[in-house]
Design a protein around this nucleic acid. Sequence first.
DNA 1: ACTAACATGTAATCTGTTACATGATTGA
DNA 2: TCAATCATGTAACAGATTACATGTTAGT
Lengths: 167, 167
Amino acid sequence: MVLGFLAEGRQHGYELRRKIEQLHGHTRRISDGTLYPAIDRLERNGYVAKEAAPGRGRAGRHTLTLTDVGRRHLLDVLRAADGHDITDATRFFVVLTFLSLLPDRADQHAVLRRRLTFLETPASFFYDGNRPIRAEEVVDPYRRGLLLTARATSAAEKAWIREEIDS
Amino acid sequence: MVLGFLAEGRQHGYELRRKIEQLHGHTRRISDGTLYPAIDRLERNGYVAKEAAPGRGRAGRHTLTLTDVGRRHLLDVLRAADGHDITDATRFFVVLTFLSLLPDRADQHAVLRRRLTFLETPASFFYDGNRPIRAEEVVDPYRRGLLLTARATSAAEKAWIREEIDS
DNA sequence: ACTAACATGTAATCTGTTACATGATTGA
DNA sequence: TCAATCATGTAACAGATTACATGTTAGT
């Protein structure tokens, strides 16, 4: 997320935090102890350049810039998105947010297709021994709701991806 | 999840792993280094009792039981579910899975109502400065899809919860 | 004068991942 | 006999949370 938002332009950490929190489900808090060390790591890896505002003490803004290496790394990560990045909805939504940064339309659609393949593999959350239980069989009202909600979500996303790929 | 599944009956760690992985999104792997130390912590807290199978070495099964303290703790956690447990879909789905364990229907519905309140608060993932951007305005196709999918998901879940509370 | 929001950082602690390590059981 | 699955654990490392710590700016 840091690299992705920095690809939209230079900015300081506090601004990043706001954007990350908004994207992260409009309540999810990202703490200082997560954000600033993460920025430091990205800087040590050469993905981000930090520039201190002149004349101020510790309170001054630090302008962050995405380096060429950082941009290349970001694109590599997006292009190669697979595994948990495809499986985990939260992670995939982050990938989606920045997927347009990939210059090649074919690469973008390849990511979408991997997500679609995952969504199309039949899944069951609950089992009776080894036999998967279908939503209609679930008697527990909350587990039933869980399955029905998950199914509606999946259907909506599949429809959208198919439409997107076909267009 | 460990306490929740143990509430369904005594079982050993490997069985728990299978159930946790199934519930956790049919791909999400839970590693040994996560599961066994977690069980140890629960045991140290007195929530879980471990009983080694007699006669075997390290390979023997350890039967795990939920203690009375553990059950009470589990119910307390479910009843008090709020914050991230309500906000984060993955966490909330775990709460939902075991919500029926709460003996009082009113407590169950109170949790559902907190989730509904959260889902009803208007949210935007992207901003133009301070102004929230509506899905229809979003030009980026993937961010647009993200917003439309999230909206469909939210609508399905809200409809289900309202129906459940009314019934 | 005070408060909220802006802005950045560190230290202690906890938890998760990865890789390593052992051994039993079951079926081809 | 070989591989897969069952079954449990540890050690090194990375990352997240919480709490602490500092200072500025803008509005009331």
